[in-house]
Amino acid sequence: MTLEIILIFSAALLSIGIFGLLTRKNIVITLMSLELIFNSVVLAAVGFTRYSIHEDFILQSLSSENIFNVLSGNILGLFIISVAAGETALALALVLALGKFKSTIELSDLSEMKN
C-alpha cells in the first residue's frame, strides 16, 4: 500500500505541474510547474527503488557489484535533480534579461519568433 500512496502523490504532482504549464502565462510560474513535474518523476523512481524489488534479480549473482544495482533509481533521481538545478539557473538568468530589456515576463508577449 505504501508504494501506491507514493505513486498517487507523484501522479498528483505531475497533473498539477501539467495544469500549471497549460494555464499560466507567467514565465516563473511555468518554471515552477516544470520543477513540480521533475519532482514527481524522481519521487516515482525512488518509490519503485524501495518497494518494487525483484528477488530473482538479486539472487542471480550475489556479489557486491551486482547487489548495489538495487539502488539505481536513487542514482537516476540524483542525476535528474542536478540537471533540473542547472536548467533552472539558466532559465532564471533569461528571466532577468527579459525583465530588463522587454519589461515583460508574460509568455504571450514573447512572439518575435512567430512566423
Binding site: 502565462k25 507567467n26 528571466v95 519589461s103 515576463i105
Partner: peptide, 19 residues
C-alpha cells in the same frame, strides 16, 4: 533563486494572468 529573481524583476510580483 526563484525568490531572488522575483524580487529583482519589476512588476513580477503581482502580474500573473491565466488563460
Amino acid at each position: 533563486l526563484m525568490a531572488f529573481s522575483i524580487l529583482l524583476v519589476k512588476d513580477l510580483q503581482t502580474a500573473s494572468s491565466t488563460t
